[in-house]
Design a protein around this nucleic acid. Structure first.
Lengths: 130, 130, 130, 130
DNA sequence: GTGGTCTAGACCACG
DNA sequence: GTGGTCTAGACCACA
Protein backbone atom coordinates (compact mmCIF):
# COMPACT_ATOMS: atom_id res chain seq x y z
CA UNK A 1 0.00 0.00 0.00
CA UNK A 2 1.07 3.57 -0.66
CA UNK A 3 0.29 6.67 1.40
CA UNK A 4 0.40 10.04 -0.31
CA UNK A 5 0.77 13.23 1.71
CA UNK A 6 0.25 16.69 0.32
CA UNK A 7 1.69 19.48 2.47
CA UNK A 8 -0.39 22.08 0.65
CA UNK A 9 -3.61 20.24 1.47
CA UNK A 10 -5.77 22.07 4.00
CA UNK A 11 -6.22 18.90 6.05
CA UNK A 12 -3.74 18.29 8.88
CA UNK A 13 -1.14 15.73 7.92
CA UNK A 14 -2.27 13.26 10.57
CA UNK A 15 -5.80 13.41 9.16
CA UNK A 16 -4.45 12.80 5.67
CA UNK A 17 -2.73 9.66 6.95
CA UNK A 18 -5.97 8.48 8.56
CA UNK A 19 -7.88 9.16 5.36
CA UNK A 20 -5.33 7.27 3.28
CA UNK A 21 -5.52 4.23 5.55
CA UNK A 22 -9.32 4.24 5.45
CA UNK A 23 -9.17 4.67 1.71
CA UNK A 24 -6.92 1.63 1.38
CA UNK A 25 -9.47 -0.32 3.42
CA UNK A 26 -12.37 0.72 1.20
CA UNK A 27 -10.40 -0.09 -1.94
CA UNK A 28 -9.20 -3.44 -0.58
CA UNK A 29 -5.51 -2.60 -0.49
CA UNK A 30 -5.57 -3.25 3.25
CA UNK A 31 -7.52 -6.10 4.87
CA UNK A 32 -8.30 -7.39 8.32
CA UNK A 33 -5.17 -8.33 10.31
CA UNK A 34 -2.83 -6.76 7.77
CA UNK A 35 0.00 -4.88 9.46
CA UNK A 36 0.38 -1.15 8.97
CA UNK A 37 3.87 0.22 8.37
CA UNK A 38 5.60 0.94 11.66
CA UNK A 39 5.48 4.48 12.92
CA UNK A 40 9.21 4.95 12.36
CA UNK A 41 9.10 3.32 8.94
CA UNK A 42 6.27 5.52 7.68
CA UNK A 43 7.67 8.66 9.28
CA UNK A 44 11.00 7.99 7.57
CA UNK A 45 9.40 7.32 4.20
CA UNK A 46 7.23 10.42 4.29
CA UNK A 47 9.82 12.65 6.02
CA UNK A 48 7.41 13.34 8.82
CA UNK A 49 7.78 13.81 12.52
CA UNK A 50 7.10 10.40 14.13
CA UNK A 51 4.70 12.15 16.50
CA UNK A 52 2.52 12.98 13.51
CA UNK A 53 2.29 9.35 12.37
CA UNK A 54 1.75 8.18 15.93
CA UNK A 55 -1.12 10.63 16.32
CA UNK A 56 -2.77 9.25 13.18
CA UNK A 57 -2.45 5.64 14.39
CA UNK A 58 -3.67 6.61 17.87
CA UNK A 59 -6.83 8.16 16.47
CA UNK A 60 -7.44 5.21 14.15
CA UNK A 61 -7.13 2.93 17.15
CA UNK A 62 -9.56 5.06 19.12
CA UNK A 63 -12.01 4.63 16.24
CA UNK A 64 -11.52 0.85 16.28
CA UNK A 65 -10.10 0.77 12.76
CA UNK A 66 -6.75 -0.63 13.88
CA UNK A 67 -5.34 -2.15 17.06
CA UNK A 68 -1.89 -2.42 18.59
CA UNK A 69 -0.10 -5.65 19.54
CA UNK A 70 2.47 -4.51 22.05
CA UNK A 71 5.95 -4.98 20.66
CA UNK A 72 4.69 -6.22 17.31
CA UNK A 73 3.06 -3.29 15.60
CA UNK A 74 -0.28 -1.95 14.44
CA UNK A 75 -2.82 -4.10 12.61
CA UNK A 76 -6.11 -3.67 10.83
CA UNK A 77 -8.95 -4.57 13.20
CA UNK A 78 -11.82 -6.88 12.55
CA UNK A 79 -14.72 -4.70 11.56
CA UNK A 80 -18.03 -6.13 12.72
CA UNK A 81 -20.00 -3.03 11.64
CA UNK A 82 -23.40 -4.11 12.84
CA UNK A 83 -25.95 -3.74 10.12
CA UNK A 84 -27.89 -1.14 12.09
CA UNK A 85 -24.78 1.02 12.68
CA UNK A 86 -23.80 0.80 9.07
CA UNK A 87 -27.26 1.77 7.95
CA UNK A 88 -27.17 4.82 10.20
CA UNK A 89 -23.74 5.83 8.94
CA UNK A 90 -24.85 5.47 5.34
CA UNK A 91 -27.80 7.74 5.94
CA UNK A 92 -25.71 10.37 7.64
CA UNK A 93 -23.09 10.44 4.92
CA UNK A 94 -25.78 10.77 2.26
CA UNK A 95 -27.56 13.52 4.19
CA UNK A 96 -24.36 15.54 4.58
CA UNK A 97 -23.54 15.16 0.90
CA UNK A 98 -27.01 16.25 -0.16
CA UNK A 99 -26.98 19.23 2.19
CA UNK A 100 -23.64 20.33 0.82
CA UNK A 101 -24.93 19.93 -2.74
CA UNK A 102 -28.12 21.90 -2.07
CA UNK A 103 -26.10 24.66 -0.41
CA UNK A 104 -24.25 25.08 -3.66
CA UNK A 105 -27.31 25.01 -5.85
CA UNK A 106 -26.90 21.42 -7.02
CA UNK A 107 -29.60 18.78 -7.27
CA UNK A 108 -29.28 15.16 -6.10
CA UNK A 109 -28.82 14.11 -9.73
CA UNK A 110 -26.04 16.66 -10.15
CA UNK A 111 -24.37 15.22 -7.07
CA UNK A 112 -24.67 11.62 -8.22
CA UNK A 113 -23.28 12.45 -11.66
CA UNK A 114 -20.36 14.33 -10.14
CA UNK A 115 -19.56 11.56 -7.67
CA UNK A 116 -19.63 8.98 -10.42
CA UNK A 117 -17.30 11.05 -12.54
CA UNK A 118 -14.92 11.74 -9.65
CA UNK A 119 -14.79 8.08 -8.67
CA UNK A 120 -14.13 7.01 -12.28
CA UNK A 121 -11.32 9.54 -12.52
CA UNK A 122 -9.72 8.36 -9.28
CA UNK A 123 -9.94 4.74 -10.48
CA UNK A 124 -7.69 5.66 -13.41
CA UNK A 125 -5.24 7.80 -11.43
CA UNK A 126 -5.71 6.74 -7.84
CA UNK A 127 -4.41 9.93 -6.20
CA UNK A 128 -6.10 12.46 -8.45
CA UNK A 129 -9.26 12.82 -6.38
CA UNK A 130 -7.46 14.56 -3.53
CA UNK B 1 -30.17 38.07 2.15
CA UNK B 2 -29.46 36.08 5.27
CA UNK B 3 -26.13 34.86 6.57
CA UNK B 4 -26.13 31.99 9.03
CA UNK B 5 -23.15 31.32 11.28
CA UNK B 6 -22.64 28.16 13.28
CA UNK B 7 -20.05 28.40 16.04
CA UNK B 8 -19.88 24.60 16.35
CA UNK B 9 -18.92 24.31 12.69
CA UNK B 10 -15.28 23.33 12.22
CA UNK B 11 -14.80 26.01 9.59
CA UNK B 12 -13.52 29.38 10.80
CA UNK B 13 -16.28 31.94 11.05
CA UNK B 14 -14.77 34.14 8.35
CA UNK B 15 -14.83 31.15 5.96
CA UNK B 16 -18.46 30.51 6.82
CA UNK B 17 -19.26 34.11 5.92
CA UNK B 18 -17.43 33.71 2.62
CA UNK B 19 -19.34 30.50 1.87
CA UNK B 20 -22.66 32.14 2.71
CA UNK B 21 -21.95 35.05 0.38
CA UNK B 22 -20.97 32.67 -2.40
CA UNK B 23 -24.08 30.65 -1.74
CA UNK B 24 -26.24 33.77 -1.99
CA UNK B 25 -24.62 34.41 -5.36
CA UNK B 26 -25.33 30.90 -6.59
CA UNK B 27 -28.92 31.13 -5.43
CA UNK B 28 -29.41 34.56 -6.95
CA UNK B 29 -30.08 36.33 -3.66
CA UNK B 30 -27.10 38.56 -4.44
CA UNK B 31 -26.40 39.93 -7.89
CA UNK B 32 -23.77 42.02 -9.64
CA UNK B 33 -23.38 45.50 -8.11
CA UNK B 34 -25.54 44.65 -5.11
CA UNK B 35 -24.11 46.05 -1.90
CA UNK B 36 -23.12 43.67 0.87
CA UNK B 37 -24.07 44.63 4.41
CA UNK B 38 -21.45 46.95 5.86
CA UNK B 39 -18.77 45.40 8.02
CA UNK B 40 -20.14 47.00 11.16
CA UNK B 41 -23.73 46.18 10.26
CA UNK B 42 -23.08 42.49 9.72
CA UNK B 43 -20.77 42.25 12.73
CA UNK B 44 -23.52 43.73 14.87
CA UNK B 45 -26.21 41.43 13.47
CA UNK B 46 -24.14 38.29 13.95
CA UNK B 47 -22.62 39.40 17.27
CA UNK B 48 -19.16 39.11 15.77
CA UNK B 49 -16.08 41.26 15.94
CA UNK B 50 -15.90 43.62 12.94
CA UNK B 51 -12.42 42.27 12.20
CA UNK B 52 -13.86 38.83 11.55
CA UNK B 53 -16.31 40.17 8.99
CA UNK B 54 -13.62 42.39 7.49
CA UNK B 55 -11.36 39.39 7.00
CA UNK B 56 -14.11 37.56 5.11
CA UNK B 57 -14.76 40.57 2.87
CA UNK B 58 -11.04 41.11 2.29
CA UNK B 59 -10.57 37.53 1.08
CA UNK B 60 -13.66 37.70 -1.11
CA UNK B 61 -12.24 40.86 -2.63
CA UNK B 62 -8.94 39.11 -3.29
CA UNK B 63 -10.88 36.35 -5.07
CA UNK B 64 -12.59 38.94 -7.23
CA UNK B 65 -16.04 38.08 -5.87
CA UNK B 66 -16.63 41.55 -4.42
CA UNK B 67 -14.96 44.93 -4.68
CA UNK B 68 -14.70 47.94 -2.42
CA UNK B 69 -15.71 51.51 -3.26
CA UNK B 70 -13.79 53.58 -0.79
CA UNK B 71 -16.00 55.25 1.70
CA UNK B 72 -19.11 53.70 0.18
CA UNK B 73 -19.07 50.03 0.93
CA UNK B 74 -18.53 46.57 -0.49
CA UNK B 75 -20.28 45.43 -3.66
CA UNK B 76 -20.71 42.28 -5.70
CA UNK B 77 -18.27 42.26 -8.62
CA UNK B 78 -18.98 41.40 -12.21
CA UNK B 79 -18.55 37.66 -12.54
CA UNK B 80 -17.76 36.53 -16.06
CA UNK B 81 -16.40 33.04 -15.32
CA UNK B 82 -19.58 31.58 -13.88
CA UNK B 83 -19.55 28.37 -15.94
CA UNK B 84 -16.02 27.55 -14.88
CA UNK B 85 -16.91 28.32 -11.28
CA UNK B 86 -19.84 25.96 -11.36
CA UNK B 87 -17.69 23.17 -12.67
CA UNK B 88 -15.21 23.78 -9.88
CA UNK B 89 -17.97 23.79 -7.28
CA UNK B 90 -19.36 20.53 -8.63
CA UNK B 91 -15.98 18.85 -8.38
CA UNK B 92 -15.39 20.11 -4.87
CA UNK B 93 -18.76 18.93 -3.62
CA UNK B 94 -18.18 15.49 -5.13
CA UNK B 95 -14.66 15.27 -3.69
CA UNK B 96 -15.92 16.14 -0.20
CA UNK B 97 -18.73 13.61 -0.41
CA UNK B 98 -16.38 10.84 -1.56
CA UNK B 99 -13.86 11.68 1.15
CA UNK B 100 -16.56 11.53 3.79
CA UNK B 101 -17.79 8.20 2.41
CA UNK B 102 -14.31 6.68 2.38
CA UNK B 103 -13.74 7.85 5.93
CA UNK B 104 -16.71 5.79 6.96
CA UNK B 105 -15.80 2.71 4.99
CA UNK B 106 -18.18 3.31 2.10
CA UNK B 107 -17.37 2.96 -1.58
CA UNK B 108 -18.45 5.36 -4.28
CA UNK B 109 -21.25 2.99 -5.23
CA UNK B 110 -22.43 2.85 -1.62
CA UNK B 111 -22.53 6.64 -1.58
CA UNK B 112 -24.44 6.92 -4.83
CA UNK B 113 -27.00 4.37 -3.71
CA UNK B 114 -27.49 6.14 -0.39
CA UNK B 115 -27.85 9.56 -2.00
CA UNK B 116 -30.41 8.21 -4.44
CA UNK B 117 -32.41 6.66 -1.61
CA UNK B 118 -32.23 9.79 0.53
CA UNK B 119 -33.26 12.01 -2.34
CA UNK B 120 -36.25 9.78 -3.15
CA UNK B 121 -37.32 9.90 0.49
CA UNK B 122 -37.07 13.69 0.68
CA UNK B 123 -39.13 13.98 -2.50
CA UNK B 124 -42.05 12.74 -0.36
CA UNK B 125 -41.30 15.14 2.52
CA UNK B 126 -39.77 18.17 0.81
CA UNK B 127 -37.43 20.62 2.53
CA UNK B 128 -36.35 17.97 5.09
CA UNK B 129 -32.74 18.23 3.95
CA UNK B 130 -32.48 21.86 5.07
CA UNK C 1 -8.21 68.82 -20.82
CA UNK C 2 -9.29 65.40 -19.71
CA UNK C 3 -9.10 63.89 -16.22
CA UNK C 4 -9.08 60.12 -15.88
CA UNK C 5 -10.03 58.44 -12.61
CA UNK C 6 -9.44 54.80 -11.85
CA UNK C 7 -11.42 53.46 -8.90
CA UNK C 8 -9.18 50.41 -8.64
CA UNK C 9 -6.09 52.58 -8.29
CA UNK C 10 -4.59 52.47 -4.81
CA UNK C 11 -4.38 56.26 -4.66
CA UNK C 12 -7.34 58.12 -3.15
CA UNK C 13 -9.55 59.67 -5.77
CA UNK C 14 -8.82 63.22 -4.65
CA UNK C 15 -5.08 62.52 -5.03
CA UNK C 16 -5.68 61.16 -8.52
CA UNK C 17 -7.43 64.39 -9.45
CA UNK C 18 -4.52 66.41 -8.07
CA UNK C 19 -2.03 64.28 -9.98
CA UNK C 20 -4.01 64.67 -13.21
CA UNK C 21 -4.09 68.44 -12.88
CA UNK C 22 -0.35 68.59 -12.19
CA UNK C 23 0.23 66.26 -15.11
CA UNK C 24 -1.75 68.54 -17.41
CA UNK C 25 0.46 71.41 -16.24
CA UNK C 26 3.66 69.52 -16.98
CA UNK C 27 2.40 68.48 -20.39
CA UNK C 28 1.16 71.97 -21.23
CA UNK C 29 -2.54 71.11 -21.48
CA UNK C 30 -3.16 73.62 -18.68
CA UNK C 31 -1.40 77.00 -18.45
CA UNK C 32 -1.22 79.95 -16.10
CA UNK C 33 -4.62 81.63 -15.58
CA UNK C 34 -6.51 78.80 -17.34
CA UNK C 35 -9.72 77.93 -15.52
CA UNK C 36 -10.20 74.48 -14.05
CA UNK C 37 -13.57 72.80 -14.54
CA UNK C 38 -15.98 73.79 -11.79
CA UNK C 39 -16.34 71.44 -8.86
CA UNK C 40 -19.90 70.57 -9.83
CA UNK C 41 -19.02 70.16 -13.48
CA UNK C 42 -16.14 67.80 -12.81
CA UNK C 43 -18.01 65.88 -10.11
CA UNK C 44 -20.86 65.36 -12.53
CA UNK C 45 -18.62 64.26 -15.40
CA UNK C 46 -16.69 61.78 -13.25
CA UNK C 47 -19.70 60.64 -11.20
CA UNK C 48 -17.95 61.66 -8.02
CA UNK C 49 -19.07 63.20 -4.80
CA UNK C 50 -18.52 67.00 -5.09
CA UNK C 51 -16.74 66.84 -1.72
CA UNK C 52 -14.06 64.70 -3.33
CA UNK C 53 -13.40 67.20 -6.12
CA UNK C 54 -13.50 70.09 -3.67
CA UNK C 55 -10.90 68.37 -1.49
CA UNK C 56 -8.58 67.99 -4.48
CA UNK C 57 -8.92 71.68 -5.42
CA UNK C 58 -8.47 72.75 -1.79
CA UNK C 59 -5.18 70.87 -1.51
CA UNK C 60 -3.96 72.20 -4.86
CA UNK C 61 -4.73 75.70 -3.64
CA UNK C 62 -2.86 75.04 -0.41
CA UNK C 63 0.14 74.05 -2.53
CA UNK C 64 -0.14 77.23 -4.56
CA UNK C 65 -0.82 75.38 -7.81
CA UNK C 66 -4.24 76.98 -8.29
CA UNK C 67 -6.13 79.89 -6.75
CA UNK C 68 -9.80 80.73 -6.30
CA UNK C 69 -11.54 83.87 -7.57
CA UNK C 70 -14.61 84.09 -5.44
CA UNK C 71 -17.72 83.57 -7.52
CA UNK C 72 -15.75 82.91 -10.68
CA UNK C 73 -14.01 79.62 -10.23
CA UNK C 74 -10.60 78.05 -9.80
CA UNK C 75 -7.63 79.05 -11.95
CA UNK C 76 -4.08 77.96 -12.53
CA UNK C 77 -1.73 80.12 -10.48
CA UNK C 78 1.33 81.90 -11.68
CA UNK C 79 4.29 79.74 -10.74
CA UNK C 80 7.35 81.79 -9.97
CA UNK C 81 9.31 78.70 -8.91
CA UNK C 82 12.48 80.41 -7.74
CA UNK C 83 15.48 78.78 -9.31
CA UNK C 84 16.81 77.73 -5.92
CA UNK C 85 13.52 76.00 -4.93
CA UNK C 86 13.30 74.25 -8.23
CA UNK C 87 16.83 73.01 -7.94
CA UNK C 88 16.12 71.60 -4.49
CA UNK C 89 12.95 69.90 -5.71
CA UNK C 90 14.78 68.37 -8.64
CA UNK C 91 17.43 66.92 -6.36
CA UNK C 92 14.88 65.47 -3.97
CA UNK C 93 12.86 63.82 -6.69
CA UNK C 94 15.99 62.28 -8.19
CA UNK C 95 17.20 61.09 -4.79
CA UNK C 96 13.89 59.40 -4.03
CA UNK C 97 13.81 57.71 -7.42
CA UNK C 98 17.36 56.44 -7.04
CA UNK C 99 16.70 55.16 -3.53
CA UNK C 100 13.64 53.30 -4.74
CA UNK C 101 15.61 51.82 -7.63
CA UNK C 102 18.50 50.70 -5.42
CA UNK C 103 16.09 49.11 -2.98
CA UNK C 104 14.86 46.94 -5.81
CA UNK C 105 18.30 46.03 -7.06
CA UNK C 106 18.31 48.42 -10.00
CA UNK C 107 21.17 50.69 -11.10
CA UNK C 108 20.83 54.34 -12.10
CA UNK C 109 21.13 53.30 -15.74
CA UNK C 110 18.35 50.75 -15.29
CA UNK C 111 16.20 53.50 -13.85
CA UNK C 112 16.92 55.97 -16.64
CA UNK C 113 16.18 53.37 -19.30
CA UNK C 114 12.91 52.41 -17.63
CA UNK C 115 11.80 56.02 -17.23
CA UNK C 116 12.57 56.76 -20.85
CA UNK C 117 10.58 53.72 -21.96
CA UNK C 118 7.64 54.56 -19.70
CA UNK C 119 7.55 58.15 -20.86
CA UNK C 120 7.66 57.12 -24.52
CA UNK C 121 4.82 54.69 -23.94
CA UNK C 122 2.68 57.33 -22.22
CA UNK C 123 3.34 59.77 -25.07
CA UNK C 124 1.66 57.32 -27.46
CA UNK C 125 -1.25 56.42 -25.19
CA UNK C 126 -1.43 59.24 -22.66
CA UNK C 127 -3.18 57.31 -19.90
CA UNK C 128 -1.17 54.06 -20.04
CA UNK C 129 1.45 55.05 -17.47
CA UNK C 130 -1.01 54.91 -14.60
CA UNK D 1 18.75 39.51 7.18
CA UNK D 2 17.55 42.82 8.56
CA UNK D 3 14.09 44.34 8.29
CA UNK D 4 13.74 48.08 8.77
CA UNK D 5 10.41 49.66 9.67
CA UNK D 6 9.69 53.36 9.55
CA UNK D 7 6.56 54.45 11.41
CA UNK D 8 6.53 57.81 9.63
CA UNK D 9 6.38 56.06 6.25
CA UNK D 10 2.97 56.41 4.59
CA UNK D 11 2.88 52.72 3.75
CA UNK D 12 1.20 50.43 6.29
CA UNK D 13 3.70 48.57 8.43
CA UNK D 14 2.63 45.19 7.05
CA UNK D 15 3.34 46.45 3.52
CA UNK D 16 6.75 47.68 4.62
CA UNK D 17 7.53 44.20 5.95
CA UNK D 18 6.42 42.68 2.64
CA UNK D 19 8.62 45.11 0.72
CA UNK D 20 11.60 44.39 2.95
CA UNK D 21 11.23 40.65 2.44
CA UNK D 22 10.95 41.10 -1.32
CA UNK D 23 13.97 43.37 -1.21
CA UNK D 24 15.97 40.73 0.67
CA UNK D 25 15.03 38.29 -2.10
CA UNK D 26 16.18 40.66 -4.83
CA UNK D 27 19.44 41.30 -3.02
CA UNK D 28 20.02 37.61 -2.35
CA UNK D 29 19.92 37.93 1.44
CA UNK D 30 17.02 35.44 1.38
CA UNK D 31 16.99 32.39 -0.87
CA UNK D 32 14.65 29.56 -1.75
CA UNK D 33 13.78 27.41 1.27
CA UNK D 34 15.33 29.84 3.73
CA UNK D 35 13.20 30.28 6.84
CA UNK D 36 11.80 33.69 7.65
CA UNK D 37 11.96 34.83 11.25
CA UNK D 38 8.99 33.45 13.15
CA UNK D 39 6.01 35.73 13.58
CA UNK D 40 6.64 36.13 17.27
CA UNK D 41 10.36 36.59 16.84
CA UNK D 42 10.02 39.37 14.30
CA UNK D 43 7.18 41.03 16.18
CA UNK D 44 9.35 41.07 19.29
CA UNK D 45 12.39 42.46 17.48
CA UNK D 46 10.43 45.23 15.76
CA UNK D 47 8.20 45.96 18.79
CA UNK D 48 5.14 45.17 16.69
CA UNK D 49 1.98 43.26 17.37
CA UNK D 50 2.28 39.67 16.12
CA UNK D 51 -0.88 40.20 14.08
CA UNK D 52 0.84 42.86 12.01
CA UNK D 53 3.68 40.53 11.11
CA UNK D 54 1.25 37.68 10.51
CA UNK D 55 -0.71 39.80 8.06
CA UNK D 56 2.46 40.53 6.09
CA UNK D 57 3.39 36.85 5.97
CA UNK D 58 -0.16 35.86 5.02
CA UNK D 59 -0.18 38.21 2.05
CA UNK D 60 3.27 37.09 0.96
CA UNK D 61 2.01 33.52 1.08
CA UNK D 62 -0.98 34.43 -1.05
CA UNK D 63 1.41 35.95 -3.59
CA UNK D 64 3.38 32.73 -3.64
CA UNK D 65 6.53 34.39 -2.30
CA UNK D 66 6.63 32.26 0.84
CA UNK D 67 4.88 29.15 2.10
CA UNK D 68 4.00 27.77 5.51
CA UNK D 69 4.98 24.40 6.93
CA UNK D 70 2.49 23.82 9.67
CA UNK D 71 4.05 23.90 13.07
CA UNK D 72 7.47 24.57 11.61
CA UNK D 73 7.50 28.07 10.26
CA UNK D 74 7.42 30.20 7.14
CA UNK D 75 9.84 29.60 4.28
CA UNK D 76 10.84 31.22 1.01
CA UNK D 77 9.04 29.53 -1.88
CA UNK D 78 10.51 28.43 -5.16
CA UNK D 79 10.37 31.40 -7.51
CA UNK D 80 10.32 30.37 -11.17
CA UNK D 81 9.05 33.63 -12.70
CA UNK D 82 11.95 35.81 -11.64
CA UNK D 83 12.52 37.40 -15.06
CA UNK D 84 8.90 38.42 -15.38
CA UNK D 85 8.99 39.75 -11.82
CA UNK D 86 12.01 41.88 -12.55
CA UNK D 87 10.31 43.40 -15.55
CA UNK D 88 7.30 44.25 -13.42
CA UNK D 89 9.50 45.78 -10.71
CA UNK D 90 11.31 47.89 -13.28
CA UNK D 91 8.04 49.24 -14.64
CA UNK D 92 6.71 50.03 -11.20
CA UNK D 93 9.83 51.87 -10.13
CA UNK D 94 9.74 53.94 -13.31
CA UNK D 95 6.03 54.70 -12.93
CA UNK D 96 6.52 55.86 -9.35
CA UNK D 97 9.45 58.07 -10.31
CA UNK D 98 7.52 59.67 -13.18
CA UNK D 99 4.48 60.25 -11.02
CA UNK D 100 6.63 61.91 -8.37
CA UNK D 101 8.28 64.09 -11.03
CA UNK D 102 4.97 65.17 -12.54
CA UNK D 103 3.67 65.99 -9.10
CA UNK D 104 6.49 68.47 -8.73
CA UNK D 105 6.16 69.99 -12.16
CA UNK D 106 9.01 68.10 -13.78
CA UNK D 107 8.96 66.43 -17.16
CA UNK D 108 10.41 63.00 -17.92
CA UNK D 109 13.48 64.68 -19.39
CA UNK D 110 13.94 66.78 -16.26
CA UNK D 111 13.81 63.59 -14.20
CA UNK D 112 16.31 61.74 -16.36
CA UNK D 113 18.74 64.67 -16.28
CA UNK D 114 18.44 64.94 -12.51
CA UNK D 115 18.93 61.22 -11.96
CA UNK D 116 21.99 61.21 -14.19
CA UNK D 117 23.47 64.13 -12.29
CA UNK D 118 22.68 62.63 -8.89
CA UNK D 119 24.14 59.29 -9.87
CA UNK D 120 27.33 60.92 -11.16
CA UNK D 121 27.64 62.84 -7.91
CA UNK D 122 27.19 59.73 -5.79
CA UNK D 123 29.86 57.96 -7.86
CA UNK D 124 32.32 60.40 -6.28
CA UNK D 125 30.98 59.94 -2.74
CA UNK D 126 29.69 56.36 -2.72
CA UNK D 127 26.86 55.15 -0.48
CA UNK D 128 25.43 58.65 -0.07
CA UNK D 129 22.10 57.56 -1.54
CA UNK D 130 21.40 55.10 1.27
C1' DG E 1 -21.29 56.88 7.16
C1' DT E 2 -17.55 53.44 4.89
C1' DG E 3 -13.42 50.24 5.05
C1' DG E 4 -8.22 49.95 6.56
C1' DT E 5 -4.75 49.50 9.99
C1' DC E 6 -2.91 48.53 14.34
C1' DT E 7 -2.51 47.07 19.21
C1' DA E 8 -3.36 43.88 23.10
C1' DG E 9 -4.08 39.59 24.33
C1' DA E 10 -6.67 35.14 24.27
C1' DC E 11 -7.18 30.16 22.76
C1' DC E 12 -6.43 26.50 19.43
C1' DA E 13 -4.39 22.91 16.25
C1' DC E 14 -0.24 21.24 14.66
C1' DG E 15 4.48 19.01 14.55
C1' DG F 1 7.96 25.70 19.45
C1' DT F 2 4.92 27.21 14.99
C1' DG F 3 1.04 29.79 12.58
C1' DG F 4 -4.33 30.49 12.63
C1' DT F 5 -8.41 32.46 14.53
C1' DC F 6 -10.99 35.53 17.22
C1' DT F 7 -12.29 39.38 20.37
C1' DA F 8 -12.09 44.18 22.00
C1' DG F 9 -11.34 48.48 20.92
C1' DA F 10 -8.53 52.33 19.05
C1' DC F 11 -7.44 55.79 15.27
C1' DC F 12 -7.32 57.13 10.43
C1' DA F 13 -8.47 58.27 5.49
C1' DC F 14 -12.07 58.60 2.43
C1' DA F 15 -16.66 59.90 0.20
Amino acid sequence: MHIAINTTDARPIYVQIMDEVRRALVLGALRTEDPLPSVRQLAGDLRLNPNTVAQAYRELEREGVVYVRRGQGTFVADRPASARDRDLIVREVAARALLDAHRHGLSADDLIAAVRQASDASADTPRAAE
